[in-house]
């Protein structure tokens, strides 16, 4: 537990239809005793859930750029990395899976992942349509993420 006494969970959400489960994920996490939750969203993920149904702070790419005005200002993805005890990416879409497995960091969420302290748990929950799932690169990329020490919560 960190100095605040809470267990801080950062939820990453990406642009798969399963992102519509975000409000349920956040609600159920908040029911765990001593858990504090924040969300990092990609722009495409916003299409699938209603912001008003999510009871916690949601960060997006805009916040990263608005926070930083001059050299002494904090960098949001570093602040979030420091804040979180655990990162869970639910859902992880095919595009973001591809980016993370290659080290690409072109938005707030992928920057948090790239800067992640690997002594802390990172869980990922892949979700994509069956045709994309069956592409041979999916298994390669998931295996790469596991090599990085990330933990898969397999899809059904």
């Amino acid at each position: 537990l960190n100095s605040s006494g809470s267990f801080r969970v950062l939820v990453g959400v990406t642009g798969s239809v399963a992102a519509l489960k975000l409000p349920a994920v956040v609600d159920q996490l908040l029911q765990l005793p001593g858990v504090d939750v924040r969300v990092v969203t990609t722009e495409h993920a916003k299409h699938f859930y209603n912001h008003a149904e999510v009871a916690v702070k949601i960060y997006s790419d805009k916040d990263e750029w608005e926070l930083w005005k001059q050299r002494t200002d904090p960098v949001l993805h570093i602040e979030l990395r420091r804040w979180a005890d655990l990162l869970v990416i639910a859902p992880l879409d095919a595009n973001t899976l591809g980016k993370i497995s290659n080290g690409i960091c072109d938005n707030l969420l992928t920057c948090v992942v790239r800067a992640w302290d690997t002594s802390r748990p990172l869980l990922f929950c892949p979700a994509m349509n069956t045709a994309m799932w069956l592409h041979p690169i999916t298994a390669q990329q998931i295996s790469r993420l596991k090599e990085f020490g990330y933990m898969e919560v397999p899809c059904i």
Partner: peptide, 21 residues
């Protein structure tokens, strides 16, 4: 390719919460 059940995700997070104590 449907995401894991929300309850499964929560229970994995919960395991890590207990480990951290």
């Amino acid at each position: 390719g449907a995401m894991a059940e929300v309850s499964t995700i929560i229970s994995v997070v919960e395991q890590h919460l207990h480990k951290s104590k």
